[in-house]
């Protein structure tokens, strides 16, 4: 008989009210130590962090947690979803993250987000700095202008999943191995109708934080930004511009990498992430 091989990852459903509505929020976690809360990109889900959730060295020092936003992955939309348009806002996104942190009783977690996640961590650093040990923004910029017609992401006469994957396929960097590239695209192919587009409402309209990022105090909440140079949604220059605005930010530019570092090329990404996590771990705890 073949022995069952289980990963260290535990997936569970958390019952809680989010934005005044009952939800079954899907959460995965592994490891012990400093909580590291990971936020997925627009139109995808927590599977993007599968490699971090399996990295033995990381799990010795960090409790890695990733959840699917409502309407994403295994977190279903709230009842009545069929009669409304999904649109993510800064306020809703912030409320969801803070509610999850409270429900899990996370003490001074590090929060790391990519793309829309890389944007919302800037909002968190502004509004909830004292709650977080540090923020890590992947593919993080203060604003992105839409550069294609977003209507294509949600219309019944094109297959949404394949078109969403087609839209983001070039955002995967050329250094990514094929399995990482195509698993990343598979997640996009599985997104619900209109969800990627609804997330981009936050990314391109509501979440514009250009005129406020300079107020982020990195002494209260250290900020680390890592960006791949093949990302044309949030470019390396966007991240550098953000770094100039936020005093004390540390920036890493990752050559050959695209918009989904943790998912498209997990092994490569961990080489860049590990020194940042070590720095955070060895930093003196705040009083």
């Amino acid at each position: 008989m073949t022995e069952a091989i289980f990963e260290p990852v535990i997936g569970r459903y958390l019952r809680l009210d989010l934005l005044g509505e009952p939800h079954r929020l899907y959460i995965e976690e592994a490891g012990q130590g400093i909580p590291l809360l990971c936020l997925h990109t627009a139109g995808s889900d927590s599977r993007q962090y599968r490699a971090l959730l399996n990295d033995a060295e990381l799990l010795k020092e960090y409790r890695v947690i990733a959840f699917d936003l409502p309407w994403h992955g295994k977190t279903s939309p709230p009842p009545g979803w069929q009669n409304r348009e999904y649109k993510l806002t800064s306020q809703a996104y912030t409320d969801i993250i803070m509610t999850v942190c409270e429900a899990l009783g996370l003490d001074q977690p590090v929060v790391m987000g990519c793309s829309i996640g890389g944007r919302i961590v800037l909002h968190l650093a502004l509004e909830h700095a004292s709650h977080f040990r540090a923020i890590i923004g992947l593919q993080s910029g203060a604003h992105v202008e839409p550069y294609y017609d977003l209507q294509w992401l949600h219309r019944p006469d094109v297959q949404g999943g394949e078109t969403c994957a087609g839209i983001v396929s070039g955002l995967v960097g050329p250094a990514a191995p094929d399995d990482g590239r195509w698993e990343t695209l598979w997640h996009y192919m599985q997104g619900g109708p209109g969800i990627f587009k609804g997330d981009l409402h936050f990314y391109t309209v509501d979440g514009d934080i250009r005129d406020r990022v300079a107020e982020i105090n990195t002494e209260l909440c250290p900020v680390y930004l890592l960006s791949g140079d093949y990302d044309y949604s949030c470019t390396a220059d966007d991240t550098r511009a953000l770094g100039r605005l936020i005093k004390g930010t540390e920036i890493t530019i990752m050559p050959g990498v695209g918009h989904f570092p943790m998912s498209e090329d997990p092994d490569g990404f961990l080489q860049y992430l590990w020194p940042v996590l070590e720095k955070i771990r060895h930093a003196e705890a705040r009083p």
């Binding site: 550069y147 294609y148 294509w152 006469d157 094109v158 297959q159 394949e162 078109t163 994957a165 087609g166 839209i167 396929s169 070039g170 044309y232 949604s233």
Partner: peptide, 23 residues
């Protein structure tokens, strides 16, 4: 699409066949 963003390439006309079969 990267070239669309950086304005070195333009897509014009009825883009439905393209967008429905983008990959």
């Amino acid at each position: 699409l990267a070239m669309v963003k950086f304005k070195t390439l333009k897509l014009e006309g009825d883009q439905h066949p393209l967008m429905a079969n983008l990959l």
